[in-house]
């Protein structure tokens, strides 16, 4: 299957802070990639570079074969993005907001209306469609953000903490939705919740201090936990990889 996201040797410096240190990433169609790592590890920064919000200090990004630096507008058509916290305009209703996104994606008139309808149906926003965004509950806000991201049926979905701050029922719903969306898409999602990776992801990457320290399947990740651990083996593996325990850092990661 086609490789939808290719990132090579990504670097990002903010002044003296070296936030991302040489990340290489390839995501083929049909893969749901879980992006893990402690706060401040560089997950959001990496996603913001892949979506063109931040410019990398070094490295290249290709989305569906389009060079992001060379043709940013065409590259930005290839993906849907849910930024951290699912931001939207507080005074717009769900319908108006999605209408704006449809126009921004180049849909007009009937076409735009159909797209908005489909997106609303897809994430069950019917009951709040005429409500202003600021009056929505966290769960509906997140769903509006997802509707916005998948409105143009992109081949790539990039979701920054899609379930953060949701209650268990809402988390379950969003996960089910992500699983449904999988199919032929390349999905990258970041999360703190390790069970989420087991539930929806086909591949897991752990980032620590700006570099990849693990890259494999969720099952492989679990097997990294020491043999004595019986409960929460994912958590144990995660801690071993990200708390500076050098032995836990692995062969596949690009350690610097």
């Amino acid at each position: 299957m086609a490789t939808r996201i290719v990132a090579r040797k990504l670097e990002k410096r903010f002044g003296h802070i070296h936030a991302v240190r040489g990340i290489d990433l390839e995501v083929p169609a049909g893969q749901v990639l879980g992006f893990l790592g402690p706060n401040g590890a560089g997950k959001s920064t990496t996603m913001r570079m892949i979506t063109g919000f931040l410019e990398p200090s070094a490295g290249t990004i290709h989305l569906e074969g389009i060079d992001l630096a060379e043709d940013p507008i065409r590259a930005k058509r290839t993906f849907g993005y849910l930024p951290e916290g699912a931001p939207a305009y507080p005074d717009m209703t769900v319908e108006e907001f999605l209408g704006f996104i449809a126009n921004a994606r180049g849909f007009r008139g009937r076409d735009a209306k159909d797209r908005v309808e489909r997106a609303i149906g897809r994430v069950n926003l019917q009951s709040v469609r005429r409500q202003a965004f600021e009056t929505l509950s966290k769960g509906y806000k997140r769903r509006t953000g997802l509707a916005q991201a998948l409105l143009h049926e992109p081949g790539i979905l990039i979701l920054d903490e899609p379930t953060d701050g949701l209650d268990p029922n809402q988390k379950f719903e969003v996960r089910e939705l992500i699983k449904e969306l999988g199919g032929d898409r390349a999905i990258v999602l970041s999360t703190h919740i390790l069970e989420e990776v087991e539930a929806v992801c086909t591949r897991a990457i752990v980032i620590n201090m700006g570099a990849i320290v693990f890259d494999g399947t969720p099952a492989e990740m679990e097997s990294r936990a020491s043999r004595e651990t019986t409960k929460n083996r994912m958590d144990a593996a995660f801690r071993a990889m990200t708390t500076g325990d050098v032995d836990a850092r692995t062969s596949k990661g690009t350690r610097r």
Binding site: R48, F53, K76, Y81, P83, E84, P87
Partner: peptide, 14 residues
């Protein structure tokens, strides 16, 4: 303030 800058800058606009 709204964080929407991240949204509009990642939509296909220049």
């Amino acid at each position: 303030r709204n964080g929407t800058i991240e949204l509009i800058m990642t939509l296909p606009f220049g």
